[in-house]
Design a binder for these strands. Structure first.
Lengths: 218, 218
DNA sequence: ATAATTTTTTAGACACATCTAAATTTTTAT
DNA sequence: ATAAAAATTTAGATGTGTCTAAAAAATTAT
Protein backbone atom coordinates (compact mmCIF):
# COMPACT_ATOMS: atom_id res chain seq x y z
CA UNK A 1 0.00 0.00 0.00
CA UNK A 2 1.22 3.45 -0.90
CA UNK A 3 1.59 6.30 1.53
CA UNK A 4 -0.12 9.66 1.17
CA UNK A 5 3.10 11.14 -0.21
CA UNK A 6 3.82 8.28 -2.58
CA UNK A 7 0.34 8.64 -4.06
CA UNK A 8 0.91 12.33 -4.67
CA UNK A 9 4.21 11.71 -6.40
CA UNK A 10 2.66 9.03 -8.56
CA UNK A 11 -0.18 11.30 -9.56
CA UNK A 12 2.29 14.00 -10.53
CA UNK A 13 4.36 11.55 -12.56
CA UNK A 14 1.24 10.30 -14.30
CA UNK A 15 0.24 13.85 -15.23
CA UNK A 16 3.71 14.58 -16.58
CA UNK A 17 3.72 11.34 -18.55
CA UNK A 18 0.49 12.15 -20.36
CA UNK A 19 1.02 13.19 -23.92
CA UNK A 20 4.78 13.08 -24.01
CA UNK A 21 6.28 9.62 -24.43
CA UNK A 22 9.62 10.83 -23.08
CA UNK A 23 10.84 10.07 -19.59
CA UNK A 24 9.82 12.50 -16.88
CA UNK A 25 12.68 14.54 -15.45
CA UNK A 26 13.53 14.94 -11.78
CA UNK A 27 13.29 18.71 -11.95
CA UNK A 28 9.84 18.60 -13.54
CA UNK A 29 8.59 16.51 -10.67
CA UNK A 30 10.27 18.75 -8.13
CA UNK A 31 8.59 21.74 -9.75
CA UNK A 32 5.00 20.54 -9.57
CA UNK A 33 5.49 18.88 -6.19
CA UNK A 34 6.94 22.13 -4.82
CA UNK A 35 9.92 20.32 -3.41
CA UNK A 36 13.64 19.91 -4.09
CA UNK A 37 15.27 17.68 -6.67
CA UNK A 38 17.10 15.78 -3.94
CA UNK A 39 13.82 14.81 -2.32
CA UNK A 40 12.48 13.65 -5.66
CA UNK A 41 15.50 11.41 -6.19
CA UNK A 42 14.90 9.77 -2.82
CA UNK A 43 11.25 9.19 -3.59
CA UNK A 44 11.61 7.87 -7.13
CA UNK A 45 14.04 5.26 -5.82
CA UNK A 46 11.36 4.08 -3.43
CA UNK A 47 8.62 4.05 -6.06
CA UNK A 48 10.95 2.21 -8.38
CA UNK A 49 11.52 -0.55 -5.81
CA UNK A 50 7.75 -0.84 -5.47
CA UNK A 51 7.50 -1.28 -9.23
CA UNK A 52 5.37 1.81 -9.70
CA UNK A 53 7.87 3.51 -12.00
CA UNK A 54 10.97 2.74 -13.99
CA UNK A 55 13.94 4.84 -12.96
CA UNK A 56 17.31 5.35 -14.56
CA UNK A 57 19.89 7.60 -12.96
CA UNK A 58 20.44 10.91 -14.71
CA UNK A 59 17.88 9.93 -17.35
CA UNK A 60 14.44 10.08 -15.79
CA UNK A 61 11.30 8.26 -14.85
CA UNK A 62 8.67 6.27 -16.73
CA UNK A 63 5.45 5.09 -15.16
CA UNK A 64 4.73 1.35 -15.09
CA UNK A 65 1.39 -0.32 -15.74
CA UNK A 66 0.92 -0.84 -12.01
CA UNK A 67 1.88 2.76 -11.29
CA UNK A 68 -0.57 4.01 -13.86
CA UNK A 69 -3.36 1.93 -12.37
CA UNK A 70 -2.61 3.38 -8.94
CA UNK A 71 -2.47 6.93 -10.26
CA UNK A 72 -5.78 6.49 -12.07
CA UNK A 73 -7.42 5.31 -8.86
CA UNK A 74 -6.21 8.41 -7.03
CA UNK A 75 -7.49 10.59 -9.86
CA UNK A 76 -10.80 8.71 -9.82
CA UNK A 77 -11.16 9.41 -6.12
CA UNK A 78 -10.17 13.05 -6.50
CA UNK A 79 -12.74 13.67 -9.22
CA UNK A 80 -15.54 11.79 -7.50
CA UNK A 81 -14.96 13.82 -4.36
CA UNK A 82 -14.92 17.07 -6.33
CA UNK A 83 -18.21 16.07 -7.89
CA UNK A 84 -19.63 15.34 -4.45
CA UNK A 85 -18.45 18.66 -3.04
CA UNK A 86 -19.98 20.68 -5.86
CA UNK A 87 -23.17 18.78 -6.48
CA UNK A 88 -24.12 17.73 -2.98
CA UNK A 89 -22.45 20.21 -0.65
CA UNK A 90 -22.80 23.25 -2.90
CA UNK A 91 -19.15 24.13 -3.00
CA UNK A 92 -18.27 26.43 -5.85
CA UNK A 93 -15.85 24.89 -8.28
CA UNK A 94 -12.95 27.09 -7.26
CA UNK A 95 -13.21 25.97 -3.61
CA UNK A 96 -13.00 22.22 -4.06
CA UNK A 97 -9.43 21.49 -4.98
CA UNK A 98 -7.65 21.64 -1.63
CA UNK A 99 -10.28 19.57 0.09
CA UNK A 100 -10.39 16.95 -2.68
CA UNK A 101 -6.61 16.82 -2.46
CA UNK A 102 -7.04 15.44 1.06
CA UNK A 103 -10.10 13.28 0.45
CA UNK A 104 -8.47 11.45 -2.48
CA UNK A 105 -6.18 9.63 -0.04
CA UNK A 106 -8.88 8.03 2.09
CA UNK A 107 -8.37 4.28 1.85
CA UNK A 108 -11.58 2.34 1.29
CA UNK A 109 -12.76 0.67 -1.86
CA UNK A 110 -16.23 0.31 -0.43
CA UNK A 111 -16.39 4.03 0.22
CA UNK A 112 -15.45 5.03 -3.27
CA UNK A 113 -17.81 2.57 -4.94
CA UNK A 114 -20.69 3.70 -2.77
CA UNK A 115 -19.84 7.34 -3.40
CA UNK A 116 -19.78 6.65 -7.14
CA UNK A 117 -23.22 5.09 -6.90
CA UNK A 118 -24.55 7.94 -4.74
CA UNK A 119 -23.45 10.41 -7.41
CA UNK A 120 -25.06 8.36 -10.18
CA UNK A 121 -21.83 7.08 -11.76
CA UNK A 122 -20.72 10.40 -13.24
CA UNK A 123 -18.28 10.30 -16.17
CA UNK A 124 -16.85 13.76 -15.69
CA UNK A 125 -16.17 16.04 -12.74
CA UNK A 126 -17.26 19.67 -12.25
CA UNK A 127 -14.24 20.88 -14.21
CA UNK A 128 -15.25 18.63 -17.11
CA UNK A 129 -12.38 16.21 -16.52
CA UNK A 130 -13.23 12.57 -17.18
CA UNK A 131 -13.60 10.28 -14.16
CA UNK A 132 -11.87 6.90 -14.58
CA UNK A 133 -14.24 4.01 -13.85
CA UNK A 134 -13.49 1.36 -11.25
CA UNK A 135 -11.25 -0.46 -13.70
CA UNK A 136 -9.33 2.70 -14.50
CA UNK A 137 -10.93 3.17 -17.91
CA UNK A 138 -11.32 6.75 -19.03
CA UNK A 139 -14.11 7.70 -21.39
CA UNK A 140 -12.22 9.93 -23.78
CA UNK A 141 -13.90 12.96 -25.29
CA UNK A 142 -12.33 15.03 -28.06
CA UNK A 143 -11.59 18.32 -26.45
CA UNK A 144 -9.82 21.29 -27.98
CA UNK A 145 -9.06 24.83 -26.92
CA UNK A 146 -11.86 27.31 -27.57
CA UNK A 147 -9.29 29.38 -29.46
CA UNK A 148 -9.11 26.70 -32.16
CA UNK A 149 -12.81 26.54 -32.92
CA UNK A 150 -14.34 28.31 -35.93
CA UNK A 151 -16.49 31.42 -35.67
CA UNK A 152 -20.20 31.09 -35.03
CA UNK A 153 -20.01 27.40 -34.20
CA UNK A 154 -21.47 26.55 -30.79
CA UNK A 155 -19.34 24.48 -28.42
CA UNK A 156 -19.65 23.35 -24.82
CA UNK A 157 -17.16 24.11 -22.12
CA UNK A 158 -15.77 20.81 -20.88
CA UNK A 159 -12.63 21.54 -18.88
CA UNK A 160 -9.68 23.80 -18.28
CA UNK A 161 -6.00 23.09 -18.78
CA UNK A 162 -4.94 25.59 -16.16
CA UNK A 163 -6.91 24.82 -13.01
CA UNK A 164 -5.43 27.55 -10.82
CA UNK A 165 -7.92 29.25 -8.51
CA UNK A 166 -7.15 32.60 -10.12
CA UNK A 167 -8.09 31.31 -13.58
CA UNK A 168 -11.21 29.63 -12.26
CA UNK A 169 -12.21 32.85 -10.52
CA UNK A 170 -11.66 34.78 -13.73
CA UNK A 171 -13.92 32.39 -15.66
CA UNK A 172 -16.52 32.56 -12.97
CA UNK A 173 -16.40 36.33 -13.03
CA UNK A 174 -16.99 36.62 -16.75
CA UNK A 175 -19.79 34.06 -16.55
CA UNK A 176 -18.19 30.90 -17.90
CA UNK A 177 -18.87 27.55 -16.24
CA UNK A 178 -18.54 23.87 -17.14
CA UNK A 179 -21.35 22.98 -19.48
CA UNK A 180 -21.86 26.50 -20.74
CA UNK A 181 -22.55 26.87 -24.44
CA UNK A 182 -20.13 29.27 -26.10
CA UNK A 183 -19.87 30.74 -29.59
CA UNK A 184 -17.04 32.86 -30.93
CA UNK A 185 -18.56 36.02 -32.43
CA UNK A 186 -15.39 37.81 -33.39
CA UNK A 187 -11.63 37.54 -33.18
CA UNK A 188 -9.87 40.74 -32.27
CA UNK A 189 -6.82 41.16 -34.51
CA UNK A 190 -4.99 43.43 -32.14
CA UNK A 191 -4.42 41.13 -29.14
CA UNK A 192 -6.00 37.81 -30.14
CA UNK A 193 -8.85 38.13 -27.66
CA UNK A 194 -12.29 36.83 -28.57
CA UNK A 195 -15.76 38.17 -28.24
CA UNK A 196 -17.96 35.25 -27.28
CA UNK A 197 -21.61 34.63 -26.54
CA UNK A 198 -22.40 32.55 -23.47
CA UNK A 199 -25.58 30.48 -23.55
CA UNK A 200 -26.92 32.67 -26.33
CA UNK A 201 -27.39 35.49 -23.86
CA UNK A 202 -24.32 37.13 -22.53
CA UNK A 203 -21.63 38.74 -24.66
CA UNK A 204 -18.17 38.92 -23.11
CA UNK A 205 -14.54 39.20 -24.13
CA UNK A 206 -12.01 36.53 -23.24
CA UNK A 207 -8.27 36.96 -23.58
CA UNK A 208 -6.21 34.85 -25.98
CA UNK A 209 -4.58 33.07 -23.04
CA UNK A 210 -7.98 32.38 -21.53
CA UNK A 211 -9.34 30.93 -24.75
CA UNK A 212 -6.31 28.68 -25.10
CA UNK A 213 -6.85 27.21 -21.64
CA UNK A 214 -10.57 26.62 -22.07
CA UNK A 215 -11.28 23.17 -23.52
CA UNK A 216 -14.53 22.62 -25.37
CA UNK A 217 -16.36 19.89 -27.26
CA UNK A 218 -18.95 20.11 -30.04
CA UNK B 1 -2.20 22.71 13.95
CA UNK B 2 -2.20 19.16 15.20
CA UNK B 3 -0.99 16.15 13.25
CA UNK B 4 -3.12 13.15 12.44
CA UNK B 5 -1.49 11.24 15.30
CA UNK B 6 -1.75 14.06 17.81
CA UNK B 7 -5.46 14.31 17.10
CA UNK B 8 -5.89 10.61 17.75
CA UNK B 9 -4.04 10.79 21.04
CA UNK B 10 -6.08 13.78 22.11
CA UNK B 11 -9.30 12.02 21.27
CA UNK B 12 -8.22 9.02 23.33
CA UNK B 13 -7.26 11.21 26.27
CA UNK B 14 -10.58 13.02 26.05
CA UNK B 15 -12.48 9.73 26.13
CA UNK B 16 -10.48 8.54 29.13
CA UNK B 17 -11.03 11.86 30.92
CA UNK B 18 -14.79 11.67 30.62
CA UNK B 19 -16.51 10.74 33.85
CA UNK B 20 -13.48 10.30 36.06
CA UNK B 21 -11.91 13.52 37.33
CA UNK B 22 -8.63 11.75 37.98
CA UNK B 23 -5.59 12.05 35.78
CA UNK B 24 -5.33 9.66 32.86
CA UNK B 25 -2.52 7.12 33.15
CA UNK B 26 0.13 6.41 30.54
CA UNK B 27 -0.76 2.74 30.39
CA UNK B 28 -4.45 3.46 29.83
CA UNK B 29 -3.56 5.58 26.83
CA UNK B 30 -1.13 2.97 25.53
CA UNK B 31 -3.87 0.37 25.83
CA UNK B 32 -6.51 2.09 23.76
CA UNK B 33 -4.00 3.50 21.27
CA UNK B 34 -2.57 0.00 20.81
CA UNK B 35 0.94 1.27 21.33
CA UNK B 36 3.67 1.13 23.93
CA UNK B 37 3.94 3.18 27.11
CA UNK B 38 7.23 4.65 25.93
CA UNK B 39 5.58 6.06 22.81
CA UNK B 40 2.83 7.56 24.91
CA UNK B 41 5.36 9.31 27.11
CA UNK B 42 6.98 10.88 24.04
CA UNK B 43 3.64 12.05 22.70
CA UNK B 44 2.21 13.47 25.91
CA UNK B 45 5.33 15.59 26.29
CA UNK B 46 4.63 17.07 22.87
CA UNK B 47 0.95 17.64 23.56
CA UNK B 48 1.86 19.22 26.87
CA UNK B 49 4.18 21.73 25.17
CA UNK B 50 1.31 22.59 22.81
CA UNK B 51 -0.88 23.24 25.85
CA UNK B 52 -3.37 20.55 24.91
CA UNK B 53 -2.85 18.59 28.11
CA UNK B 54 -1.28 18.97 31.52
CA UNK B 55 1.38 16.37 32.21
CA UNK B 56 3.19 15.42 35.37
CA UNK B 57 5.82 12.72 35.34
CA UNK B 58 4.79 9.42 36.90
CA UNK B 59 1.42 10.91 37.77
CA UNK B 60 -0.56 11.25 34.60
CA UNK B 61 -2.34 13.52 32.17
CA UNK B 62 -5.23 15.97 32.39
CA UNK B 63 -6.82 17.54 29.35
CA UNK B 64 -6.81 21.36 29.07
CA UNK B 65 -9.65 23.53 27.84
CA UNK B 66 -7.90 23.94 24.50
CA UNK B 67 -7.26 20.22 24.25
CA UNK B 68 -10.87 19.48 25.00
CA UNK B 69 -12.03 21.89 22.30
CA UNK B 70 -9.75 20.18 19.77
CA UNK B 71 -10.90 16.72 20.80
CA UNK B 72 -14.53 17.76 20.50
CA UNK B 73 -13.96 19.00 16.97
CA UNK B 74 -12.43 15.68 15.96
CA UNK B 75 -15.34 13.84 17.55
CA UNK B 76 -17.77 16.17 15.78
CA UNK B 77 -16.16 15.37 12.45
CA UNK B 78 -16.09 11.64 13.14
CA UNK B 79 -19.76 11.50 14.02
CA UNK B 80 -20.89 13.69 11.15
CA UNK B 81 -19.00 11.45 8.73
CA UNK B 82 -20.49 8.33 10.29
CA UNK B 83 -23.93 9.83 9.87
CA UNK B 84 -23.14 10.61 6.23
CA UNK B 85 -21.86 7.10 5.55
CA UNK B 86 -24.90 5.42 7.03
CA UNK B 87 -27.64 7.78 5.91
CA UNK B 88 -26.40 8.80 2.47
CA UNK B 89 -24.11 6.02 1.32
CA UNK B 90 -26.00 3.15 2.94
CA UNK B 91 -23.12 1.79 4.93
CA UNK B 92 -24.13 -0.57 7.70
CA UNK B 93 -23.24 0.50 11.24
CA UNK B 94 -20.35 -1.95 11.57
CA UNK B 95 -18.64 -0.82 8.37
CA UNK B 96 -18.33 2.86 9.15
CA UNK B 97 -15.76 3.09 11.89
CA UNK B 98 -12.51 2.60 10.03
CA UNK B 99 -13.51 4.97 7.27
CA UNK B 100 -14.75 7.66 9.66
CA UNK B 101 -11.49 7.25 11.54
CA UNK B 102 -9.75 8.54 8.41
CA UNK B 103 -12.29 11.13 7.36
CA UNK B 104 -12.27 12.80 10.78
CA UNK B 105 -8.80 14.17 10.07
CA UNK B 106 -9.66 16.07 6.89
CA UNK B 107 -8.83 19.71 7.50
CA UNK B 108 -11.51 22.10 6.30
CA UNK B 109 -13.97 24.06 8.37
CA UNK B 110 -16.01 24.86 5.29
CA UNK B 111 -16.32 21.17 4.49
CA UNK B 112 -17.57 20.19 7.90
CA UNK B 113 -20.09 23.03 8.13
CA UNK B 114 -21.46 22.20 4.71
CA UNK B 115 -21.62 18.52 5.56
CA UNK B 116 -23.47 19.38 8.76
CA UNK B 117 -25.99 21.38 6.77
CA UNK B 118 -26.33 18.65 4.12
CA UNK B 119 -27.20 16.17 6.86
CA UNK B 120 -29.75 18.54 8.40
CA UNK B 121 -27.74 19.45 11.52
CA UNK B 122 -28.06 16.08 13.24
CA UNK B 123 -27.60 15.99 17.03
CA UNK B 124 -26.64 12.35 17.27
CA UNK B 125 -24.87 9.81 15.09
CA UNK B 126 -26.15 6.40 13.94
CA UNK B 127 -24.98 4.82 17.19
CA UNK B 128 -26.84 7.38 19.26
CA UNK B 129 -23.74 9.29 20.26
CA UNK B 130 -24.29 13.05 20.54
CA UNK B 131 -22.65 15.22 17.88
CA UNK B 132 -20.96 18.34 19.28
CA UNK B 133 -22.11 21.52 17.50
CA UNK B 134 -19.69 23.90 15.82
CA UNK B 135 -18.90 25.51 19.18
CA UNK B 136 -18.18 22.14 20.76
CA UNK B 137 -21.43 22.09 22.73
CA UNK B 138 -22.85 18.65 23.34
CA UNK B 139 -26.55 18.21 23.83
CA UNK B 140 -26.47 16.37 27.13
CA UNK B 141 -28.01 12.96 27.21
CA UNK B 142 -29.62 11.56 30.31
CA UNK B 143 -27.59 9.08 32.26
CA UNK B 144 -29.37 6.26 33.96
CA UNK B 145 -28.49 2.99 35.64
CA UNK B 146 -27.90 0.12 33.26
CA UNK B 147 -30.52 -1.79 35.22
CA UNK B 148 -33.21 0.57 33.94
CA UNK B 149 -32.50 0.17 30.25
CA UNK B 150 -34.58 -2.07 28.01
CA UNK B 151 -33.31 -5.36 26.65
CA UNK B 152 -31.30 -5.42 23.43
CA UNK B 153 -30.79 -1.67 23.35
CA UNK B 154 -27.15 -0.66 23.15
CA UNK B 155 -25.92 1.85 25.73
CA UNK B 156 -22.57 3.33 26.62
CA UNK B 157 -20.96 3.27 30.03
CA UNK B 158 -20.48 6.86 31.21
CA UNK B 159 -19.83 6.75 34.94
CA UNK B 160 -20.46 4.95 38.18
CA UNK B 161 -22.41 6.01 41.27
CA UNK B 162 -20.30 3.90 43.58
CA UNK B 163 -16.69 4.70 42.86
CA UNK B 164 -15.09 2.42 45.42
CA UNK B 165 -11.92 0.68 44.32
CA UNK B 166 -13.52 -2.68 44.89
CA UNK B 167 -16.39 -1.87 42.52
CA UNK B 168 -14.04 -0.47 39.91
CA UNK B 169 -11.87 -3.54 40.16
CA UNK B 170 -14.90 -5.72 39.75
CA UNK B 171 -15.92 -3.82 36.61
CA UNK B 172 -12.42 -4.02 35.25
CA UNK B 173 -12.27 -7.74 35.93
CA UNK B 174 -15.44 -8.50 33.99
CA UNK B 175 -14.28 -6.26 31.14
CA UNK B 176 -16.33 -3.10 31.65
CA UNK B 177 -14.75 0.31 31.21
CA UNK B 178 -15.90 3.88 30.64
CA UNK B 179 -17.00 4.16 27.05
CA UNK B 180 -17.78 0.47 26.65
CA UNK B 181 -20.89 -0.38 24.64
CA UNK B 182 -23.21 -2.66 26.59
CA UNK B 183 -26.43 -4.43 25.72
CA UNK B 184 -28.64 -6.35 28.13
CA UNK B 185 -29.27 -9.75 26.64
CA UNK B 186 -31.32 -11.25 29.45
CA UNK B 187 -32.59 -10.53 32.94
CA UNK B 188 -32.27 -13.41 35.37
CA UNK B 189 -35.47 -13.67 37.41
CA UNK B 190 -33.85 -15.46 40.30
CA UNK B 191 -31.41 -12.82 41.57
CA UNK B 192 -31.92 -9.81 39.28
CA UNK B 193 -28.53 -10.22 37.64
CA UNK B 194 -28.13 -9.43 33.96
CA UNK B 195 -26.43 -11.14 31.08
CA UNK B 196 -24.82 -8.41 29.01
CA UNK B 197 -22.78 -8.14 25.83
CA UNK B 198 -19.75 -5.84 25.97
CA UNK B 199 -18.68 -4.14 22.73
CA UNK B 200 -20.58 -6.72 20.72
CA UNK B 201 -17.99 -9.33 21.67
CA UNK B 202 -17.90 -10.47 25.24
CA UNK B 203 -20.83 -11.96 27.14
CA UNK B 204 -20.70 -11.60 30.92
CA UNK B 205 -23.03 -11.55 33.91
CA UNK B 206 -23.34 -8.50 36.14
CA UNK B 207 -25.08 -8.51 39.50
CA UNK B 208 -28.19 -6.44 40.18
CA UNK B 209 -26.19 -4.15 42.50
CA UNK B 210 -23.55 -3.72 39.84
CA UNK B 211 -26.07 -2.80 37.15
CA UNK B 212 -27.68 -0.23 39.45
CA UNK B 213 -24.39 1.54 40.01
CA UNK B 214 -23.37 1.63 36.40
CA UNK B 215 -24.59 4.77 34.63
CA UNK B 216 -25.13 4.62 30.91
CA UNK B 217 -26.38 6.79 28.07
CA UNK B 218 -27.89 5.94 24.71
C1' DA C 1 36.87 19.55 -27.75
C1' DT C 2 36.97 21.79 -23.91
C1' DA C 3 34.96 24.95 -20.67
C1' DA C 4 30.89 26.67 -18.49
C1' DT C 5 26.35 25.77 -17.10
C1' DT C 6 22.59 23.07 -15.73
C1' DT C 7 20.68 18.95 -13.91
C1' DT C 8 20.87 15.23 -10.95
C1' DT C 9 22.65 12.48 -7.32
C1' DT C 10 24.98 11.58 -2.95
C1' DA C 11 26.16 12.61 1.78
C1' DG C 12 24.81 14.01 5.97
C1' DA C 13 21.38 16.17 8.83
C1' DC C 14 16.73 16.93 11.01
C1' DA C 15 11.75 16.29 12.63
C1' DC C 16 8.22 12.88 13.41
C1' DA C 17 6.38 8.74 15.35
C1' DT C 18 7.57 4.52 16.66
C1' DC C 19 10.07 0.66 19.05
C1' DT C 20 13.11 -2.29 22.59
C1' DA C 21 15.84 -2.53 26.53
C1' DA C 22 17.37 -0.58 30.61
C1' DA C 23 16.78 2.59 34.45
C1' DT C 24 13.84 4.90 37.63
C1' DT C 25 9.80 5.81 40.38
C1' DT C 26 5.59 4.37 42.47
C1' DT C 27 2.66 0.91 44.33
C1' DT C 28 1.72 -3.40 46.58
C1' DA C 29 2.67 -7.21 49.50
C1' DT C 30 4.99 -9.43 53.21
C1' DA D 1 9.88 -1.14 56.61
C1' DT D 2 11.66 -3.39 53.23
C1' DA D 3 11.37 -6.35 49.25
C1' DA D 4 8.92 -7.51 45.12
C1' DA D 5 6.05 -6.08 41.47
C1' DA D 6 4.14 -2.84 38.42
C1' DA D 7 4.15 1.37 36.01
C1' DT D 8 6.66 4.89 33.84
C1' DT D 9 10.47 7.23 31.86
C1' DT D 10 14.95 7.55 29.48
C1' DA D 11 18.31 6.12 26.12
C1' DG D 12 19.21 4.72 21.86
C1' DA D 13 17.60 2.88 17.51
C1' DT D 14 14.59 2.55 13.12
C1' DG D 15 11.85 4.18 9.06
C1' DT D 16 9.72 8.06 6.50
C1' DG D 17 10.09 12.27 4.18
C1' DT D 18 12.33 16.36 4.05
C1' DC D 19 16.32 19.60 3.57
C1' DT D 20 21.22 21.90 2.36
C1' DA D 21 25.67 21.55 0.55
C1' DA D 22 28.81 19.25 -2.21
C1' DA D 23 29.98 15.93 -5.86
C1' DA D 24 29.03 13.85 -10.27
C1' DA D 25 27.02 13.56 -14.77
C1' DA D 26 24.86 15.56 -18.75
C1' DT D 27 24.04 19.43 -21.64
C1' DT D 28 25.31 23.81 -23.84
C1' DA D 29 28.13 27.15 -25.68
C1' DT D 30 32.44 28.81 -27.39
Amino acid sequence: MLSFTEENYLKAIYRLSEGGSKAVLTNEIAEIMSTKAASVTDMVKKLSVKDMIGYEKYYGVTITRRGMAEALMVIRKHRLWETFLVEKLNFSWDEVHDVAEQLEHIQSNLLIEKLDEFLGFPTSDPHGHPIPDKNGKIQEVRQRPLSETPLNKKHFVRSVTDGTPSFLKYLSKIGIYIGAGVVILEKVEFDGSLEILIDGKKKVFISRDGAQNLLVTE
